[in-house]
Design a protein around this nucleic acid. Structure first.
Lengths: 189, 189
DNA sequence: GCTGCTTTTTACCAAATGGTAAATGCATTC
DNA sequence: GAATGCATTTACCATTTGGTAAAAAGCAGC
């Protein structure tokens, strides 16, 4: 819980009373590997903050291939925020890649915090912007660099993930087949 | 100017007085083709709104290749917003692809609007989030689809741009060489 | 219309990647 | 420890893309 509070306080100041109010709204959620945090075609139920584990955002392209769009690990928010706020159906899945533990907020609790804590919307707005920018920064090189470079920067960006995530997901994140990734790994050795 | 006001009002309500205040702060900027709106290594001076023309965001990767990251055309904001707000040096160039006409705000004027108009920060926050999400949505398929599919969706996403933007920029946006793009265009015909 | 310049297309071959299928490795269960 | 199921690697060949270079097309200035 300390990690959660520290994360938020990076983006704005809150007094003890406000923090207590927010913390009071938290619930815990546990997911087993491969269970879904939210699903395409359904309305996202929670905003989450990962205490333990790794999740991925994924979708199916028009060829029916499953594409991993992002990985998120400990001490980060995980949410299809736009769809959650608007309470409309999602187009992506958020899936637990490992067994996971979350702090979660329901829409009702999230709104109550927003209506109670002055400055909460500003803080969460900054957090979202931050996440979106990070996503863009991470994914941009995936368009222009060659596959080996992309793999090396993946390792660099997510040092802990290589051992926790199936290579098939990493390959689809990098935009290559699993066979190509295997070949690249061989060449690097 | 009407387009500019309409754009803003999509994201929140403002009364006539507030709109007049904002409009009163606007200045005009004209750039010739290939001139820079802002430059890597320099602090962004303006937030812009494009009245006429097309700009691109670009940078140089570690191989020295020039990579076009985004295109933006008429009736959209153009800004390296995070760097502008923080007044720190940019890492990307924003370049006029055609002759351009902008509405611009200096940092001083932007701050004055923020300090005067209640709700301005919320509106601009929403606009920024919207732009970031659009960027992610547009660029994500560039990782996982093949080059022909990427080119076709570029045409679909930016119907007017093909005739106004050099193919070399489009190729780098799509993450392929100009020769490959030319080959793809031939195969489609 | 010609000249010189830039953009775009072609051509050629080398390198990288995809697709299909089989082999290997690795962990779990019985 | 044999058998099973899943993840990963390897192999093979077809296809796509990159790199270099030259040709063709388009365009501005004279």
């Amino acid at each position: 819980m300390k990690e959660f509070v520290n994360y938020i306080l990076q983006f704005g100041n809150l007094n003890t009373q406000q923090i207590d109010f927010i913390v009071g709204k938290t619930k815990k959620l546990v997911l087993k590997k491969e269970e879904y945090f939210s699903e395409a075609g359904k309305i996202p139920r929670y905003v989450g903050f990962i205490l333990k584990g790794v999740v991925r955002f994924c979708y199916y392209n028009n060829k029916g291939e499953e594409i991993t769009h992002s990985f998120i690990d400990e001490n980060n928010f995980v949410s299809d925020q736009q769809r959650f706020e608007a309470q409309v159906v999602a187009s992506e899945y958020i899936q637990a890649v490992t067994d996971c533990e979350f702090i979660i907020f329901s829409k009702k609790d999230w709104d109550e915090i927003s209506n109670t804590i002055v400055g909460w919307d500003t803080i969460t707005g900054l957090i979202l912007k931050n996440c979106l920018l990070k996503t863009i920064e991470r994914r941009s090189p995936l368009v222009s660099e060659d596959a080996t470079t992309r793999y090396l920067s993946f390792i660099h960006q997510f040092p802990g993930l290589l051992s926790r995530v199936p290579l098939s997901h990493i390959a689809s994140y990098l935009g290559i087949t699993q066979q190509s990734l295997s070949r690249i790994r061989k060449n690097i050795r």
